[in-house]
Design a protein around this nucleic acid. Sequence first.
DNA 1: TACTCAGATGAATCCCACG
DNA 2: ACGTGGGATTCATCTGAGT
Lengths: 370, 370
Amino acid sequence: MTTKTKKKGAATLPLNEILAGDCVEVMNSLPENSVDLIFADPPYNLQLRGDLHRPDNSKVDAVDDHWDQFDSFKAYDKFTRAWLAAARRILKPNGAIWVIGSYHNVFRMGAELQNQGFWILNDVVWRKSNPMPNFRGKRLTNAHETMIWASKQEASKYTFNYEALKALNDGVQMRSDWVIPICNGHERLKDDAGNKAHPTQKPEALLHRVMVAATNPGDVVLDPFFGTGTTGAVAKMLGREFIGIEREEAYREVAKKRIDNVRKFDKEALTVSQSKRAQPRVPFGQLVERGMLRPGEVLTSPRGKVAKVRADGTLVSDDVKGSIHQVGAALEGAPSCNGWTYWMFKRDGKNVPIDLLRQQIRAEMAERPN
Amino acid sequence: MTTKTKKKGAATLPLNEILAGDCVEVMNSLPENSVDLIFADPPYNLQLRGDLHRPDNSKVDAVDDHWDQFDSFKAYDKFTRAWLAAARRILKPNGAIWVIGSYHNVFRMGAELQNQGFWILNDVVWRKSNPMPNFRGKRLTNAHETMIWASKQEASKYTFNYEALKALNDGVQMRSDWVIPICNGHERLKDDAGNKAHPTQKPEALLHRVMVAATNPGDVVLDPFFGTGTTGAVAKMLGREFIGIEREEAYREVAKKRIDNVRKFDKEALTVSQSKRAQPRVPFGQLVERGMLRPGEVLTSPRGKVAKVRADGTLVSDDVKGSIHQVGAALEGAPSCNGWTYWMFKRDGKNVPIDLLRQQIRAEMAERPN
DNA sequence: TACTCAGATGAATCCCACG
DNA sequence: ACGTGGGATTCATCTGAGT
């Protein structure tokens, strides 16, 4: 495992390590505003039948009493409040968190996220293609778990690789319900006796999609309930840095061995479809300066509106003057207008969007970046 | 509308009526332990900011009604606490409740349900087959809403028609995620001017499934946020008794007229559209997420072209990037190309079309439909 | 009639670099 | 910090007019 550290003020950030201990204490020892993404799969040990243990492992006596249930909810809320606050402190201002849970705990996590000022971006349903059936026929097959994606605050400029997720979904915008098989087969880690190494190991496909969606290569991803290290394994494959925190030594050992055996994907495979927003801005005036369009030349719209190009890169049409966007919006009575795709010019007798000229300039810029 | 009443101690239960007023006050005026099922679709507290336009510049009709405005989470919690307590009092000991919401409010409702001693049986995801897209490309398509099904207490012997739901689902155990279209077309109620009678009308198919699952004929179903009366309409069709509570006179009027026109047991309008695709679409990206192909892996074409797989399920080859189909077409100089049959990967030293992997996934899907 | 195609629309916490 | 304005962004389904 490669170990790097990042300086952040006085404290340093231990990268690609599995830290031992209680996640709240460990997170509190890390520098604030230092982590890009947190993925958390906390225990739901609200025990509903049989022995009831509070999250701190103290035992609750009576089970069937409403007040004891309430007491255990209170304890679980206290636990949730503590680790979410610690997580929020170490998140960068533009950072985000994903938590996963079932109906036993996810409502309490979601409410506490909101209470602490996290800003929910989506709730995402992991729809299991092969869930365990409900054997007694007393309820619906519990065929999904819920993830909550939230930024540190409402104003956060969170990372979302929209185009990459659209590409993952065959060119259609990715939805909030994801069909992914549960973790089994070769991917499921077993001990020497053939028993599951961890009771709730998450599929790598789930983490793959989360990280492609919400991080960029080189980002730091922290998992406070690391378990057998799915988060670390996928982070390494995808060229992200990880920080794991895990209390149980047995899990840490399994995770370390697992991650050591992971190979990084090569760099080219990690670059992902880019949004147009990432492309350099080209002022319309540049087309005029370069002689791609002449002052006085007439542009037309799909619905037959016309405007004349002026030497300074503005348009004029009857009583309207201004940018390609402003004139387009005014002529359409629309709140806004993308002039690049709205206006067309004549080439070889055919009307062609002026965006074609911008693409030519961008292609030149890519060849000779200056 | 047939009006019956049921005696319960001193007070009586008004059946098949729409009661005017605040739902907490009205519920408090009803006898305790008297209702079999409550279905509640409370305000979501959406907290919308500015206007939203589609890419074609048309404006999205926002849910900006006064009844959805709350000053804070604290105010919303107070509201939730009050109506859930009133609802719980009138529920029979073996009764149950369904609530529906989005990520804006459902976590707070779920936590409060637990706090009050309701016993969650399932969270149920309504997966919309035709949700509104995310127009700005800043988040995932919000393609689902969440329902919570809870009994009055842990010891409740709640109603669950397991076999009926299994039958509704082609003989396979019903799962916790339900695919149902949003309410539109002829089912969507309009006023004389052609505007939506209610901004958030729920589909009858959803209520149909809830009532078939959780009630028997003759049961009393109460809806404290009746709106335009979907709950009442479906209850009448299915031979259940309903009690509606609605504050707004305009909604009550629409609902009354609607329910008066409902015929019992008119199942034709209720059959859930199955719309099975002959062959389900499998995004190429799924092969990457599932680890069937690795980012960086090289695919080859019959004529020796090569391309590398990227983490988002796109390919890259020399100067061309894009989907398996786009890159294939570009390399062949063809207008189109079926990437599934064009590209091959290496398995056991032999080149095999990637379509083989798609067939594997489809086979899994066929074994476990839904 | 049957089919095509343009237009409308749905519970939505929906931009951001630059001056 | 705040205002300005360039310019990026959509899927499934139903309706209704036209052929």
